[in-house]
Computed example of a mutant assay.
Amino acid sequence: MFISPMLLETAAGPFSDSRYIFEPKIDGHRLIYSQQNGIVRLFTRHNNDCTRQYPEISSALFPYDVVLDGEIACVDPMAGISDFESVMSRFQAKKTDKIMQLTASLPVTFVVFDILSYKGEDLRSLPLMERKAILAELTLPNANFGIVPYIEGAGEALFDQIQARNMEGVVAKRKDSTYVSRRSAAWQKVINWSYADVFITGYRKAEFGWLAGVPTSSGGKMRPSGIIEFGATPTHKKAFYGVSKQLITGEDREYVYVEPKIKARVKIRNWTKAGLLRSPVFTEFIV
């Protein structure tokens, strides 16, 4: 049984409030675990069935029907935190032999933070803390399941710890919140952004996108580092296109290329292993 998940609003910044609990934000992908009549099915937040991709989760049975909400994580043993690229390697695997190989080399953990149905009873109308109490009493079926920890009130202190460990961020949830299948201000996220300075090396002809580049280690050529699609206001775009006309060096079917003279600061989730910006958001030009 798929239940459309409750989604997060974005908080202005870290905060503390006794009406909220605060959880570490897990860097993986959302998962709804549904066990009905002894059959387990796993769904992404968009109702895509991913039962086959995670046999270490889908083969685990509770002694009763249950629907759980959480995140699929793939923990880097060196850093002790979830690695998003490893999660995507697991999610994108389709062939059975590849899935089984990755189950051994990149095992996942289902980090549970909510319980939506228990022994056939819909729990979504209960306050969050009552659902948390029921969740805490569950006996998890194997070592690939975990329950996300939380603290009450002290969101800023938790965020400081998250920053120190270079984790993704913090989720704030009102203690009295019921579970609704939409975006709600009762649940908010605070992302632990990193920042990078890049050069704009071109732009997309169709929908908006600035090509980003960074100097190579030798300081000569530019190395492509991704596409900036978000954050720029109409004023920023107008300023860029006014200046870039004099910097055009060529074009192809998709892009116009410019000299790397315009520098910008972006906020990012992190750098990927391939040296690309993950989820870059423009913040300002650097003059």
Rank of each mutant, 00 (worst) to 15 (best):
N192A: 04
K175S: 11
R183T: 10
V214A: 07
V214T: 11
R183A: 04
G202V: 03
A212D: 03
G213M: 04
K205V: 09
K173M: 05
P215Y: 08
G209S: 03
A185S: 14
K173I: 11
R183W: 00
F199E: 07
R174H: 12
K205Q: 13
S181E: 09
T178N: 02
G209P: 06
S217G: 15
A186Y: 07
G202N: 01
R182A: 15
G202R: 00
F199G: 06
G209T: 02
A172M: 03
A186E: 13
F199M: 07
F208E: 04
I191R: 05
Y179I: 06
Q188K: 08
F208S: 05
G209I: 13
R204N: 13
G202F: 02
F208D: 04
A196V: 11
F199W: 11
A185W: 10
K175T: 12
S194Q: 13
Q188P: 13
A172W: 02
A172K: 01
V198C: 08
S177T: 10
V180S: 03
V214S: 10
R174A: 10
A206I: 11
Y203F: 14
F208R: 02
R204F: 10
R182E: 14
T201Y: 03
R174P: 07
F199Y: 07
R174F: 12
F199T: 08
I191S: 06
A206C: 11
A172G: 15
W193V: 08
P215A: 12
T201H: 01
A196Y: 03
E207K: 10
Y203K: 03
R182H: 14
W187N: 05
Y179R: 01
S194H: 07
N192V: 03
I191E: 08
K205F: 08
R182Y: 14
W187F: 05
R182F: 12
R174L: 13
S217D: 15
V180W: 00
Y179F: 09
G202T: 00
S217T: 15
R174G: 10
A196S: 14
K175D: 12
A185Q: 10
V214P: 11
R204I: 11
K173Y: 03
T178H: 03
Y203G: 08
